[in-house]
């Protein structure tokens, strides 16, 4: 009743839809960075959308099954191979005891989600099976997978041959357009710097990970002169420590914006220009290093409308899979 890890890939971890409710004590919500892909992978194999899946970053693992199951791969275009034969993504297919699942080179996106019927049955920690790697919490022993690991599976019954057509998936743009709501500390930069921030094209830095996505290539920000407030550090980008929202865009020293993602730290002393809207956080999860990206300013009304549209798109996909 297990999946054996033959080789782990680059950074593969157990994730579900996360553990909300503990961010105030520094434990991030976590969970699959591409929530749409996480949910759909589960639905394709007959699981609850919040069952635990494997999130593979940039490179797939090689796995061996010790029992029959139905599996599906969604998210980035990481072609699955069953015993060396390519299988489609966004479509469930059967595996049997002794079968090996490996992956070809990543063809698009950045993260793939592998769901197995029954779900990955690691212990629930603080309400979730997600791995918080930085905190060594949850998932499989609180870490990314290693060769030799065995992951238990729950009881499931999936149906092979279920698929989500391309028109029901979210397509990315190039350059990626990340809609952003300017926020509390916007007044700290000059108007010219603010305009340039949105006009310029940035590139994903190779350091980008589950904690934050770093961007570089734009002009450093010019700050408005001020006397540093008591309790703030000496850099013009420093503030008196504040809470960091999920999606917030901090710019340490005004040089490289970092968008905090699902394993975000919960607070600190860098000013935030605003937040990337919730509807666009899945897009960030699928950006490879060096991908061009732009930040696009929106209003709160735009952000809420985008969230409503994203929920409708998810409902259409769920409706299709429910038949």
């Amino acid at each position: 009743m297990a999946v054996k890890v033959i080789s782990p890939g680059l950074s593969t971890s157990v994730q579900d839809l996360g553990r909300p409710g503990h961010y105030h004590v520094g434990i991030p919500e976590g969970g699959g960075m591409d929530r749409f892909a996480t949910r759909i992978a589960n639905l394709l194999v007959g699981n609850n959308p919040g069952a635990a899946v494997l999130e593979a970053t940039f490179m797939g693992p090689e796995l061996e099954f010790t029992q029959s199951a139905v599996v599906a791969v969604t998210g980035g275009e990481l072609p699955p191979k069953l015993n060396g034969e390519e299988r489609p993504t966004w479509e469930s297919f059967p595996v049997k005891a002794g079968d090996r699942l490996s992956f070809g080179f990543l063809k698009g996106g950045a993260r793939a989600y592998l769901a197995v019927s029954g779900g990955i049955d690691v212990p629930v920690v603080l309400g979730s099976r997600s791995t918080y790697i930085l905190g060594a919490l949850g998932g499989h022993q609180g870490r990314t997978l290693k060769a030799g690991d065995e992951l238990p599976l729950g009881e499931g019954s999936g149906k092979a041959g279920l698929s989500l057509p391309a028109n029901l998936r979210r397509a990315g743009n190039s350059p990626a357009e990340l809609r952003m709501l300017p926020g509390m500390y916007w007044h700290r930069i000059t108007e010219a710097a603010g305009n340039r921030f949105f006009e310029e094209t940035w590139k994903v830095a190779p350091e980008a990970d589950r904690i934050g996505y770093r961007f570089r290539g734009g002009t450093p920000l010019e700050f408005v002169e001020r006397e540093q407030p008591f309790g703030a550090g000496s850099d013009p980008s420093n503030i008196v420590d504040a809470c960091y929202p999920y999606g917030s865009v901090q710019v340490p020293s005004g040089t490289e914006p970092i968008v905090l993602h699902r394993d975000a730290v919960s607070g600190g002393g860098y000013m935030m220009l605003g937040v990337v809207i919730s509807a666009d956080m899945d897009l960030i999860a699928q950006l490879q290093p060096h991908t061009p990206a732009r930040f696009v300013p929106v209003t709160l009304e735009d952000a809420l409308a985008a969230r409503t549209e994203q929920r409708a798109a998810l409902a259409r996909a769920e409706g299709h899979l429910a038949g």
Partner: peptide, 9 residues
């Protein structure tokens, strides 16, 4: 020889 990963070479 193909790159197995995206990044900086």
């Amino acid at each position: 020889i193909l790159s197995p990963l995206p990044g900086t070479f």
